[in-house]
Amino acid sequence: MLETLLQGLSSSSIYAVLALGFVVIYKGTKVVNLAHGSVMLLGVYVISLLAPRLGFWPGAVIGILVGAAGAVVIQFMTNAVRSKDHLVMTIMTIGINVMIAAELTHEIGDATVFTGDPWGNRSLSIGGSSFPVSRLMALIVGSVLIGVIFAIFRFTQFGVKLRASAVDAETSSLLGISQRSVSIWSWVIGGGLATVGGIFLAAFPANGLDSGSATLAMSAIPAIIIGGMDSAGGAVLGGLIVGCGEAVARRLIPELAPVLGDSFASVVPFILMLAVLLVRPSGLFGSKVVQRV
């Protein structure tokens, strides 16, 4: 029971970090970054190249910066759309994802990408069950990051600017808030968060990432839909629901495996997502937006 809870919490924190990345970008630009997974893989790949030479921590920092930079490049591309239509920009991220994924697949090939993180495959014994240190770190770092992001939103001037722009872009411009600056910084934060999420995804018990791992980030999308695409709190809650739901499903799998199969756990988030979309399209905490049909 405790094991399931811890598992749920730690995968929740990974989902939450990834979901938060999506949400920050969406809040700042109203674009759903469907290239998030590729940015994540890019950052982790850079770490895998640099860590052996520079050590894990310098490598991680540079990898996170590269992830953020890659995200900014995506911002420039989406910003070039003349009509500034957010749906078109979202579709563009699909094209960008195809590009980055192709290039990364070529570079990575069949190999597996390791970050060389310092937690390795060590495990701690907690309450009688063994728990991977890396997952514990995911929980701690994830929670800290989430706290930091929330603090930025609530207390800093940037947070005020971001939230103001999300609510009313025109008035924010009138108040001197540069939409461009808000947009770029949202992507920077989003890209950085994606890489951090990737570091933990690559860690034990997973065995690194491969060229197909970019789609793992897509599993965070149910989290943002359930929570509400423009709500940071929703992203965290969504991450909790998805992570714990998955952990519970995994726990129940031995009983249900004959009927539902092994991969049912990864489908559960999407079923929940569809259910939420039907009942409350704007998610649990999202603001109701008049959608252009």
Binding site: H86, I221, L277, L278, Q291, V293
Partner: peptide, 9 residues
């Protein structure tokens, strides 16, 4: 029920 982005999701 849904439109635009939400339908895509």
């Amino acid at each position: 029920r849904l439109g635009g982005l939400y339908l895509g999701m």
